[in-house]
Simulated assay, not measured.
Amino acid sequence: MPIRVRPIVAADKPEWLQLFRAYIAFYQENVPDDVVERTWRRLLAQDDGMLALIATDEEGRAAGIANLVFHRSTWSATWYCYLEDLFVAQEARGKGVGRALIEATYAEADRRGASRTYWATQEKNAKARALYDRVGGLTEFVQYRR
């Protein structure tokens, strides 16, 4: 399946919303509508170091999204790239969309001079982790939250 990955544009909002809401549902979370709308505006404007990528199939249908956050680090003179959200539509899974989004994330991180690209997933997310094990390195860090 030929996959095209590019930054989002305003016309992508319905597809991005559908995929982002499916991503939130996948993790059984609830994000208020006003936060989703604010996130969309920030990603579209590439505000606060935020950028969204969308993957489309050969017919131009949205197949997946990646929401990135670029930030400074106390451990580096460069930027870091946090791949905060990565989601592939159910019907597009297993067709290289996730890999294409990660490769596009790496390319954008390189373009911006980021010295680290990182992300997190649930331990039980076996399908995604099978890909992540091939394209990234698992760290020994454990995440805590307040």
Rank of each mutant, 00 (worst) to 15 (best):
K13L: 08
R99C: 10
G136E: 08
H71W: 02
Q122M: 08
M50G: 14
W75H: 06
E58N: 13
D57Q: 00
V97L: 11
S73A: 14
A77C: 14
Q90K: 13
A45E: 13
K127P: 12
V69R: 11
Q18W: 11
V36H: 01
W75S: 12
A126F: 15
Y144G: 03
G94M: 10
A52M: 03
W16D: 05
W40E: 03
R129G: 10
V97E: 12
R93Y: 11
A55P: 01
S115I: 09
Y144F: 15
E15Y: 13
L17E: 12
A11Y: 08
G136H: 02
E84H: 10
V31G: 00
Q28P: 09
A25D: 11
T139E: 06
A63M: 12
R21M: 07
A22D: 05
T117D: 05
V35T: 13
F141V: 15
R93P: 02
D12G: 06
V36A: 03
R61D: 08
E108C: 00
W75K: 08
T74M: 12
V142G: 04
A126T: 14
E91F: 12
F20G: 08
E103S: 09
F20H: 09
K95Q: 13
L83P: 02
L138Y: 10
A130Y: 12
V9C: 08
T39W: 08
Q90H: 14
A52W: 02
R41E: 08
A22N: 05
Y106D: 09
F87Y: 10
A89L: 06
A10F: 02
R72T: 14
R146I: 10
E91Q: 12
A89I: 03
G64E: 00
G96M: 10
A126K: 14
P2K: 09
R4K: 14
K13V: 09
A107V: 01
E37S: 13
G60T: 03
P32W: 07
V69N: 14
I54E: 04
T78N: 15
Q143W: 11
D12I: 01
T117K: 08
Y27W: 01
A89Y: 05
L43P: 01
Q46C: 05
R42M: 07
F26Q: 02
A63I: 09
L138C: 07
T121D: 00
T105R: 06
D48F: 02
S73V: 12
T117L: 13
Y132S: 03
E29Q: 15
I54T: 06
F87D: 00
A120H: 11
R111C: 10
A66V: 01
F26S: 05
E58P: 04
C81D: 02
P32S: 02
Q46K: 11
R116D: 01
Y118S: 06
T139D: 11
D33G: 03
I24V: 11
E123F: 03
A10Y: 00
Q28L: 11
A11M: 06
G49T: 08
L68H: 04
W119R: 00
L83G: 03
I102M: 06
G64I: 05
E108D: 04
P7Y: 03
T74G: 07
A130K: 11
W119D: 05
L101V: 11
L17Q: 09
R6L: 05
V36C: 05
A63Q: 09
W40K: 00
P32D: 01
